[in-house]
């Protein structure tokens, strides 16, 4: 009996309708075939769909952006070296692929770069830039250079000095004239060499105990660069002197001063549009102004520091002697005391 009942049930099963329920998916039919399939797409990382190679100028721009914003040290260095070779391999009079006005703002932050190879490569590249273009951007360049000179890492300070040397070679006049170029740079020199004094009056004699003041070997070099800088600012340049001598057109006096100025932004010192500047940020166009400020704020500190360096003798002593010579030469014709601006 049991078996027959089961058989009956089995038979009935074939003709039973599946129960449909609300909210449940419909049961699949017995003869259902799964026809779905999976596909995988392949992503090609770098693909170039152009038939021609990228132009050299676009490649130049690409490497420039790599140099300025890449995260890896080696990539930045390599990009810089590429730029350097591009620039050096160009024909002599051909214009550089991108103007200096674009190149400099992108590359100047690299002065503060952590990797020394990048910094040295940067210096190499900068030396290739046309000198005339740098002068107009001296202020910006000096901003980063000063940041480098007061940096906490000694290597960056040294390399920043090299940059300053380059700037002095290329745009001597602009460096000392541009806003903040004279006083602020001198101040960072003082900080770097540990000759700085507090603005507050203190009763204590401050023996220099700073942890990064005298950096051994770098000290003579700092003295030399300071000497160069002072020379640029204080000593009358040859051109100026020759100008003064050329009084050939006798009846006319100071003709040059009445002619259209050759410098760009000749009235920058009037500061017509910018925010007002304080004493440090001011432009010191005249040599006499520079002398006055130097005498007022820095000379004493420099004299003391220089004397100490001379007593050390050796390399530092020799450098100090050079500095001394520049100082004497620069301040020789300073009458002093005529403080008409304040």
């Amino acid at each position: 009996m049991g078996s027959s009942a089961r058989k009956k049930k089995d038979k009935r099963k074939d003709f039973q309708k599946p129960k449909l329920k609300v909210g449940k998916t419909k049961p699949k039919a017995d003869n259902f075939t799964d026809t779905s399939f999976k596909a995988r797409s392949i992503v090609v990382n770098q693909q170039s769909l152009t038939t021609v190679a990228p132009s050299s100028s676009s490649q130049f721009a690409h490497y420039l952006s790599l140099a300025s914003s890449s995260k890896s040290d080696s990539q930045r260095r390599d990009a810089l070296s590429y730029l350097t070779t591009q620039l050096s391999s160009q024909p002599v009079n051909a214009p550089i692929p991108l103007p200096t006005a674009i190149l400099l703002p992108k590359l100047l932050p690299l002065i503060l770069d952590g990797s020394s190879s990048v910094r040295s490569q940067l210096l190499k590249f900068l030396r290739l830039l046309p000198a005339a273009d740098v002068g107009d951007r001296a202020e910006q360049a000096l901003l980063y250079t000063r940041a480098g000179m007061t940096h906490l890492a000694a290597e960056i300070r040294v390399d920043a000095l090299a940059i300053l040397e380059w700037l002095l070679e290329v745009a001597k006049e602009d460096i000392v004239i541009c806003p903040g170029g004279w006083v602020k740079t001198l101040k960072s020199f003082m900080t770097m060499m540990g000759w700085a004094t507090t603005s507050g009056t203190s009763k204590w004699t401050s023996a220099s105990k700073a942890s990064f003041g005298k950096a051994g070997k770098a000290f003579p070099r700092q003295l030399l660069v300071l000497a160069q800088f002072l020379k640029a600012g204080l000593v009358e340049s040859g051109a100026e002197a020759s100008l003064r001598l050329s009084v050939s057109s006798f009846p006319l006096v100071d003709v040059e001063k009445h002619m259209i100025p050759t410098r760009s932004n000749a009235f920058a010192h009037l500061n017509l549009f910018g925010s007002s500047r304080d004493e440090e940020g001011e432009m010191y166009i005249d040599r006499e102004d520079r002398q006055r400020v130097f005498q007022k704020r820095f000379q004493a500190a420099v004299q003391v520091g220089m004397e100490n360096a001379r007593k050390e003798a050796g390399e530092a002593g020799r450098a100090a002697a050079v500095l001394n010579k520049v100082l004497v030469e620069g301040m020789a014709d300073y009458s002093g005391g005529v403080d008409d601006t304040l």
């Binding site: 703002p105 932050p109 910006q140 901003l143 980063y144 000063r146 940041a147 000179m149 007061t150 940096h151 906490l152 903040g180 602020k184 101040k187 960072s188 900080t191 540990g194 700085a196 507090t198 203190s202 204590w204 401050s206 220099s208 105990k209 700073a210 942890s211 990064f212 003041g213």
Partner: peptide, 25 residues
């Protein structure tokens, strides 16, 4: 403590130059 003055001045100098860079752009 005044013995730290120069160190502080160094740091402050660094701050000032960074500030200048920042304000420039």
């Amino acid at each position: 403590d005044l013995s730290y003055t120069e160190d502080f001045l160094n740091q402050y100098g660094q701050y000032q130059s960074q500030r200048d860079i920042f304000l420039a752009s």
